[in-house]
Design a protein around this nucleic acid. Structure first.
Lengths: 356, 356
DNA sequence: TTGAAAGCGCTAACAC
DNA sequence: GTGTTAGCGCTTTCAA
């Protein structure tokens, strides 16, 4: 170990200086090459690139953030309570996974990282929590998932600080990039699928009021029903996406004087609940009752019977969010939204013609 | 907007300077308070804390990393191919979610963040990929999930750079903190559960050879069978955790001259495959065939019938990993491992006495 | 027990 | 086109 006294405690990594020395140019020139800046002759660029290759140089995010105006970080915000509850109960929802799939991979393409955080949308401290995360990380953009995109405390704070943000599954009439699927059209499509099978008593279980998309889905369902000349007065049950609320809603709809023959549920958990309630009442799905889910999560594919469902493009929406934010950080002009991504109606074995 | 010319383009956040000025002390004193350092009188500490509160100051991670020796970042590494394939196919595995649950929340307790990355364990570029992530982020520690913890290219690189790392589900005889459940004992427990029900022809489908825990599970199964005086010569099928390999393995085991009456599968996907193969052969579970899964993921709870399964403590293991790494970054002495966390055998409806 | 000075690795602004 | 300088917000080191 002779000579090792010279080795500093903090092992020095390859920095821009080493590259500059290796290529025989100034720091600034290396910086320009890294950032694809103008005013570098091709020959020099080659030399720098070669030096970077040779030394295996990768710039430090922290240093870039300190020197410059960007952090190469995107912050993805999810609702704390709902997310943790879902993880702990193992509810089988893959929202977060799909977000990672879309967001992480898109970030990686551009040298960005996506950092996941949980904040309490209902807490009085939302602003404090968010401020703290912003101060610690200085993200170049923030991705808001429902219901955060509909929370004015959050959107106003972000807007006032001029931090670009994207709202997934949230309305177009506000600051921030709106990225959505057409929830109304999706609900209408699901309803029409049931109408086409011959159903007329089609019940709808809504999502939580915190989510603007809950309303849009209800609107889509109502318009499809109205188009078929059916009154929906007694056919709507209020839910909040949870299994329990799905149980309540299903029982209400199946306990009507003239019970429903089909249930369109605004979440996978509520659809599963409908399945359970039906079974408890001796109803067979889809023979006696058709069920449609609004989430196409793994469990609705593996449950018995596999459920007909609307597939939300969560990964593509998150990828789009990341891309818009990165482009915004690059100073690009972004086309006006809302950015609407296509849904899919996936027909499986939980829907059939009504009994009789 | 008069006076706004003074506002810089880059909106200045609250920094340590502001806090120092507000409290009437030097930067250094504020830094000491933030870092819980020694040599600060209580009265002064109070003043600083009050100033921090008042201004809503939160230190910038990037600046702390630049100035000091730590980044307050932990890097969690997952296998790229397997993870992405799982996300895209919606296989219902909640490994990543459970890691986030355990890791993120533990990090948050200590002002740390966990950053998720995917690297290709089989690629020739593992080292390049990992080096790049290390250079960009300078994490204070790395969490390795299977099979990365068993990849010497990765562990050696980390060890040589003196970056603390934790290996989840990997063996104790190597550098890095080993965090595991007792895979052998778990396999034995599952086997004994089946033996107790009266089974003797118990088939086992192994996991991928890349994973050291695959071997340990096989060992546990074998020892339990040996204890019951049963020869396992024809009872072991090789799988790789995937559904397809589960189909193959199940078919082999059910196609034996004297077919198995129970299958212990090393993953949820393979257990599901066993269920499918059984159904295709007109076998009813658990009447004609018992099935035990080695993952307790949401789908094995929602499938029909819900599967008896070993529950791996993924969230607690990840939390432990994060905690050990953070303590290591704090310079604490860490007790010798391996750190073994308890598993659970959860009996559901897929296991019963053998036919006849 | 406190403060002052230096420097981390990079980018921005400007000079050449 | 290219290089020089200053400074980002902290921690470290050393002096007081």
């Amino acid at each position: 170990m002779a000579g090792d006294e010279i080795v500093s405690r903090r092992p020095r990594a390859v920095t821009i200086k080493h590259v500059a020395a290796e290529a025989g140019v100034s720091l600034q020139t290396v910086s320009r090459v890294i950032n694809d800046g103008p005013n570098v002759r091709d020959a020099i660029k080659q030399r720098v690139v070669a030096a970077i290759e040779k030394l295996g140089y990768v710039p430090s995010l922290a240093a870039r953030r300190m020197g410059g105006t960007r952090s190469y970080l995107l912050l993805a915000l999810n609702d704390r309570d709902r997310t943790i509850a879902g993880w702990q109960s193992g509810d089988g929802t893959d929202w977060v996974d799909q977000m990672l799939l879309g967001g992480m991979l898109k970030c990686a393409e551009h040298g960005y990282r996506m950092i996941f955080e949980l904040v309490d949308t209902h807490s009085l401290h939302v602003e404090r929590e968010l401020t703290a995360a912003l101060a610690a990380l200085h993200p170049d953009g923030v991705i808001l998932t429902p219901p955060h995109g509909d929370n004015p405390l959050i959107t106003r704070l972000l807007a006032s600080r001029h931090i670009p943000f994207a709202r997934i599954g949230s309305d177009g009439q506000a600051p921030g990039f709106a990225i959505q699927m057409d929830d109304a059209k999706a609900a209408a499509a699901a309803t029409e699928h049931l109408l086409l099978l011959g159903h007329r008593r089609i019940g709808f279980i809504t999502g939580s009021r915190d989510y603007s998309l809950s309303v849009k889905r209800l609107v889509g369902y109502r318009s499809a029903m109205r188009g078929a000349g059916i009154n929906t007065r007694d056919l709507v049950a209020e839910g909040d996406f949870t299994f329990e609320s799905g149980v309540k809603g299903s029982e209400a709809l199946l306990g009507l004087g003239e019970p429903v023959t089909a249930i369109l549920a605004s979440s996978d958990q509520m659809a599963l609940a409908a399945l359970n309630v039906a079974r408890a009442r001796g109803l067979e799905v889809p023979r006696d009752l058709s069920v449609v889910s609004f989430d196409d999560t793994p469990i609705v594919r593996f449950c018995a019977p596999p459920l007909t469902a609307i597939r939300q493009p969560i990964a593509p929406m998150t990828a789009t969010a990341a891309e818009l934010l990165i482009r915004a950080a690059n100073g690009d002009e972004i086309e006006d939204g809302p950015h609407v991504l296509p849904f899919e109606l996936i027909v499986r074995e939980s829907t059939a013609a009504p009994p009789r």
